[in-house]
Structure formats: structure tokens, C-alpha cells
Design a protein around this nucleic acid. Structure first.
Lengths: 159, 159
DNA sequence: TGCAGATAGATGTTATAACACGTATAATTC
DNA sequence: GAATTATACGTGTTATAACATCTATCTGCA
């Protein structure tokens, strides 16, 4: 029986190795899930990365975070956090101040408008996530989370 | 004990739900793995998406595939397959001909230069994949592949 | 035949990603 | 304490992604 992924990608030949199939499965799954998030966020005018930033800044609270701290907390690395924050600032969702003792740092904080947007998004996004993988149940989700952590540990060893 | 992902993202608070942590885990893992592939391909001047296209066209063989067939086989959806193929054609890695009976179709085939590039990449990429997740072993990889297929089945139901 | 709709693909435009380089402030070294 | 190095951030530029719209070809049906 051909694998499910093979069918999804309309591929005739089987995969070269379990490793290869796993890599493609992870990439494919991430792409499918992100597409759902993109669609859910689109009416609100933000991207998944921007949403991620807003959540990070909400978590950071009133103290805010400097640019590199935000960048390092992002799920996917971005090489240009400055302009990512520029766009959020332009939209009024974050505010920046060079008010740290070390004047190289620029502190970014989420604004009331940003908090308001997140508040409106919390429920739909939670529901989306539940729809996307609520069927698996806590046990399988736990297994999945552990396996993925193990993958990352092997892929990017030592810290 | 805070989860591994929490530590990676320097996040203080625990995740809102297992679903949320799973979503972020998948996205994070895909990002980490892709970064490795990007670095491996960079010296050869192609991106993971372009590499994906070349592998698809090698698999299609002499008959080639039309633009939309290539697009539908890609792991991550791209909304502009025309110019993706443009760039590969410019690099001499694929060739296109409007030679199908239905003259709307443009058949794309991998060139000798494309096959040669893939031949040079096969071993390093296989080794990279083994390094990235060879440690898990066949059993865990199988579990991971199955769980991810189940996620995609739930996230994009019915076909 | 001739026309409406569907399909395959190209093109124009804007936004964002990616990369290299530049500037300001702080820490370190002598 | 002056010069050097390191860090944090910004800017300029190019390539690619994303979106809408357009043209060419085919299909089905009157």
C-alpha cells in the first residue's frame, strides 16, 4: 500500500528512505497547518509571523522585549526583525522606545490595539487548532510533541 | 519541568493547550530541518523548493510534467509556479516545450545539467537527513510519519 | 458553426524575505 | 583614558512570494 503522503503528492515511486519520508511529512504537515492559520488571520490583516510576535510581546507584558529578544523567540527564524516590527508599529499594534539604560536597545511593547486584536483572535485560533488536531487526543499529541523534540535535538545538537 | 520547546523559545509561560504546543512543535521542527537543507543547498545555488521541483521532474522522467502537475506535487504550495520554473529554466536545469497535443499545456523536463546537479546532491542530502533524524530509528520514525499523516487527515478532511 | 464557460498558463504589481553593509553605543584592552 | 572590539540596530538592494488580472486554447452545447 502506498503511503498516505505519496498519495497526497501524487507520487508514483516510494520514498528513498524513512528519513526522507519523515522530513517531507514534517514539512508537508507544517505547510498544511500554516495554511489554515494564514486563512484565519487574513481577514485581520496579519501574517502568522506577525501573530507570533504579538503573542510573544503579550507574554512579555509591560516590560516589553528588545528586537533581538523577539527575534530569538520566534518559531521560524527571520533575518530582518527590524522591518517586521516596523510593519507592526505602522499598524499601531506595537510601540517602540529607546528607553533602556543601554541606549543600543530598542524596547518593543504591544499596544492596546495589539492586545485587542489578540483578544479577538484567541478564540477562533484556539478553535482552529482544536479542529486541526483535536481528534488525536492528549496521548497521541504527547507522543508527537516528544518525537518532534527528539528530532530537533538530533538535528541541532548541543547548546 | 518546562517543555523542551519552551526552553528553545525562551518562553516563561507554559503553552495554552497540547494542541497549541503541537502546532508550534511542528512548525519549529520544520523550520529547523529546512534550515539545514537551505545551508546544504546554498553552495549549489538552489533553494529547497527548487530542489523539490528537480526531484519531482527526475521522478517524472522523459515525459516531463506540465506546470500545474509540478505545482500540485510540491510539498509546500506556491502560487507562482510559472516563475519558479522560469528561474530553473534560466539556470539551465529544466527545459520547457509547448509540445503537448493540447496546446495550452507547457511540458517541463529536467535537463542533463539538472540531473547532474541532483546526482551531486543525492549523497550529501541523504547524509544530512540521516544526521538530522537517523538517531530515532525506524520504529519511532514510523510512528512519527503515521501521527503526522493523521494530523493532516484531521486538518484537511475529505478529498 | 458559433458562443459560453472552463482550463492552462503568463504577466503586472506590491509586499516581504534575504543578504550585505553601515552606524551608534557599550565593553575591553592596553 | 584612548583605541579596539563587540553588540544592537538600522538601511540599501535584490530576489522571491503573493495576489489579481489577462491571454490563449479547449470543451460542450445550442
Amino acid at each position: 500500500m502506498p503511503s498516505r503522503l505519496q498519495a497526497e503528492l501524487k507520487q508514483g515511486k516510494p520514498f528513498a528512505s524513512p528519513e526522507h519520508e519523515a522530513i517531507l511529512s514534517i514539512a508537508r504537515t507544517a505547510s498544511v497547518l500554516e495554511h489554515g492559520v494564514i486563512e484565519a488571520l487574513k481577514p485581520h490583516g496579519i501574517t502568522p509571523t506577525q501573530y507570533n510576535v504579538l503573542r510573544i510581546l503579550r507574554g512579555a507584558g509591560k516590560e516589553g522585549l528588545c528586537r533581538n529578544a523577539v527575534r530569538d523567540r520566534l518559531v521560524a527564524r527571520v533575518p530582518d526583525a527590524t522591518r517586521l516590527l516596523d510593519r507592526l508599529a505602522e499598524a499601531g499594534l506595537v510601540a517602540r522606545d529607546r528607553d533602556a539604560p543601554d541606549r543600543r536597545y530598542v524596547t518593543t511593547r504591544i499596544t492596546l490595539a495589539g492586545l485587542d486584536l489578540l483578544a479577538r483572535l484567541d478564540q477562533p485560533i484556539t478553535q482552529l487548532h482544536r479542529r486541526q488536531l483535536g481528534r488525536l487526543g492528549a496521548r497521541k499529541l504527547g507522543t508527537l510533541i516528544d518525537l518532534l523534540a527528539e528530532v530537533r535535538g538530533a538535528a541541532a545538537p548541543a547548546e
